[in-house]
Nucleic acid binder design. Structure first.
Length: 472
RNA sequence: GGCACCAUAGCCAAGUGGUAAGGCAGGGGUCUGCAAAACCCUUAUUCUCCAGUUCAAAUCUGGAUGGUGCCUCCA
């Protein structure tokens, strides 16, 4: 599999340090509020990467942190008159609610910054011993000028940055360099704090990821992922800290996803132009949101709009209906089937899987992966209307669609699993009798009644097909 | 001021040297008692524009235009 590595700005073959075992660290949410669609993109995208690696029988150790202590946490907790810990516990619960429904697998480790304090302090101490830090009145700082490779990920030249930015960015305070950042913030009145060699305080933002990554995955990890906006300064700073402290490369492959925009402007809490996943799910359903995210390539900007959301709704329905239709055909399969066409369908399935894997192997090209699935859907629809297919080949087609969707974290069986109650089936039978007697008034009345109850009847060459409309 | 990214049909979106995937929407049709689903036809001689390289460019190079992001919390 090739992935685009932001460190080299090229697609590279993914070669993990340990054969057949990939370590992944994804920057998780700051748990001060429900997350919005833009926040959801990395969760869904890197979950899909994980699922695909698992599908390829590659072992994955996956870490996604919770940032549960920072200014936003403190401010929100104060506003709600609860402790920071209470806020974090509550919001982590809410995170799981949305993430589980988006079918984002739980990470192998979901560390919290506040539960990694000893490791953070240890790392700062090492940096201090090695001479990378200095102390100001409000905390311990990292001196970026001491780290020769600073800027290698985001390709920034510190002097140029400072020259132009000084017009609009506040002055350096007492920092030695504009890009220097705080490792340990000394306690201010009313803030949660932990003991440390530098006095009571709390970790700066960047150090937590370095410490948690090291704690669970070691000095050098295979993949570190997050949103584009984290590339600088967050990930740049992580590299500086980790490599300065560990003396080893921090990350082999950096992956960054593009933003979700609203009217072509980045969706952000601070911009006020955000849509919570919780709210959107009520309108479109979690599956559709996941489908929507994955129908664009993860590095491209994705504009949030009504029409594409509806397109995602209908596109996903097309797949669900196809699975449902195939299952109906299997249940009513004719023992006298067309051998040539059945064999040909089996071949087409193999082609589909190849196309799907080719797409996914190419830097997680999920739009192309969907195209492969849709091609199979159309193919099955075409041959199954003209020929009787073997139950075996139909089953393979059904399983192929379901399995490939599952790799993308989408459950295409959900709808089909809904049981139809006996009394509904009884009504369907009555309608069929009325139809046979050409009593279409009665037949249509029954159909309308069942529609009102949420059941859909479709007449097919194999007889009436009844299905339940699935709510989101 | 610096550093990046994006520009493909009505909409969304792949494709990065070999003659424009896929989804949605629209129009027409087949099937149906009527529907639904499905299928067929139709929708970009062309990929923001201008030059250049090449037998060949949406794809490479240079330039222009428009839009966005980061440099401050940020997925």
């Amino acid at each position: 599999m090739r992935i685009y590595n932001d460190l080299t700005r090229r697609k590279e073959e993914l070669i993990p340090q340990q054969e057949n075992h990939v370590t992944v660290y994804v920057c998780g949410p700051t748990v001060y509020d429900l997350f919005h669609l833009g926040n959801a993109r990395p969760f869904v995208v890197y979950d899909t990467l994980r699922r695909y690696l698992l599908y390829k029988n590659v072992e994955v150790t996956y870490v996604q942190n919770f940032t549960d202590i920072d200014d936003k946490m403190i401010n929100r907790a104060q506003a709600l008159n609860i402790t920071v810990k209470q806020l974090a516990d509550e919001m982590i619960k809410e995170y799981y609610h949305d993430a589980d429904n988006l079918n984002v697998m739980r990470a192998d480790y979901h560390p919290r910054a506040t539960e990694t304090i000893p490791e953070i302090i240890e790392m700062i101490s090492i940096l201090e011993e090695k001479g990378y830090t200095y102390i100001l009145h409000d905390g311990v700082y990292f001196d970026t000028s001491k780290f020769a490779d600073y800027g290698k990920l985001s390709r920034r030249d510190l002097d140029d940055q400072e020259a132009g930015a000084s017009e609009r960015v506040e002055l350096l305070d007492d920092k030695r360099n504009l890009s220097d950042f705080v490792l340990w913030k000394l306690k201010k009145e009313g803030e949660p704090a932990w003991e440390s060699p530098w006095g009571e305080g709390r970790p700066g933002w960047h150090i937590e990821c370095s410490a948690m990554s090291k704690k669970y995955l070691g000095d050098t990890i295979d993949i570190h992922a997050g949103g584009m906006d984290l590339m600088f300064p967050h990930h740049e700073n992580e590299i500086a800290q980790s490599e300065a402290a560990n003396g080893k490369p921090f990350v082999n492959y950096w992956m960054h996803n593009g933003f979700i925009n609203v009217d072509n402007v980045k969706m952000a809490k601070s911009g006020g132009n955000f849509f919570l996943v919780r709210e959107l799910a009520g309108e479109y359903g979690y599956d559709v949101l996941r489908f929507f995210i994955l129908q664009a390539h993860y590095r491209m900007p994705l504009n949030f709009e009504e029409e594409p959301l509806m397109a995602a709704t209908h596109g996903w329905q097309r797949i669900l209906r196809s699975v449902e239709n195939i299952e109906f055909l299997i249940a009513n399969a004719n023992p006298e089937f067309d051998q040539t066409q059945s064999a040909e369908l089996s071949d087409y399935i193999i082609t589909t899987i190849k196309e799907f894997e080719r797409a996914m192997d190419d830097d997680l090209n999920t739009p192309d992966a969907f195209a492969a699935i849709f091609n199979l859907v159309r193919h099955v629809n075409i041959v199954s209307t003209d020929y009787a297919l073997s139950a075996d080949s139909l089953e393979k087609a059904r399983n192929c669609i379901v399995e490939l969707c599952a790799v993308l974290g989408l459950d295409a069986e959900k709808k089909a699993e809904a049981e139809i109650p006996a009394d509904i089936l009884e009504q369907v039978k009555l309608r069929d009798q009325a139809k046979a007697e050409r009593d279409f008034v009665t037949a249509d009345r029954i159909r309308d009644e069942l529609n009102a109850l949420g059941y859909k009847i479709e007449d097919t060459p194999q007889g009436p097909k009844v299905s339940r409309e699935v709510e989101n």
